[in-house]
Amino acid sequence: MNKIQSKNSAYWKKNLQTLVLLLSVWFAVSFGCGIFLTDFLNQFKLGGYPLGFWFAQQGSLFTFILLIFLYVIRMNKLDREFGVNED
């Protein structure tokens, strides 16, 4: 494998690691808090609503939007690190 292929491989490996991490967080929040832990979380209130209900209705969406911003920040850093940024 030549130097360019090695660099591309390292770039995509880090990219996929980032994707797996962020999607795992989203899965944990949307399914874990919104489905599996609903009964436990419903003991607490957020804005007058049970927390389990809130996570099922709003929390996973807010988390997904936050993860999109984190992905953009991480990918910009990764692009600069490997010299493929668009700036």
Rank of each mutant, 00 (worst) to 15 (best):
L51F: 00
R74K: 10
G83W: 01
F40S: 04
K45M: 10
Q17F: 11
K3A: 15
S9Y: 05
L46C: 00
Y11D: 06
W26S: 06
A10Y: 02
G47A: 12
I35K: 10
L61I: 04
Y11Q: 02
T18P: 01
K45Y: 12
D79L: 01
Q17S: 14
M1S: 08
F62Y: 15
Q43T: 08
L22W: 02
Q43G: 07
C33K: 07
I73A: 02
Q57N: 08
T63G: 07
Q17A: 14
T38R: 15
D79I: 00
G52V: 09
V25G: 07
F36G: 03
I73G: 00
Y49K: 12
I73P: 00
G52D: 05
F31A: 03
L16K: 09
P50F: 11
I68L: 03
F64G: 03
K77R: 12
K77Y: 10
S9L: 11
L16D: 09
I35N: 14
F55G: 05
M1K: 04
T38K: 15
A56H: 00
D39C: 00
Q5I: 09
N76V: 07
G52R: 04
S24L: 09
G34H: 01
C33I: 04
N76L: 15
F53R: 03
I68Y: 07
E86M: 12
G48E: 02
M75N: 12
D87N: 11
Q43M: 07
I4D: 11
V25T: 14
L70N: 10
S30D: 14
L23N: 15
L21T: 12
L41D: 05
Y49L: 03
V84C: 05
L19T: 14
L22M: 08
L61C: 07
D79A: 13
N42R: 00
Q43L: 07
W26D: 01
I73F: 03
L41Q: 06
F31G: 02
Q57P: 01
W54M: 02
Q57S: 06
Q17Y: 15
L19S: 15
Y71N: 13
Q43F: 04
L22K: 13
G34L: 01
L70C: 08
L19M: 15
K3C: 03
I35W: 15
A28M: 10
V29R: 04
S6F: 09
G48R: 08
F62C: 11
W12H: 14
V20S: 01
L46A: 09
F62A: 09
F82T: 09
A56F: 09
A28S: 06
W26P: 04
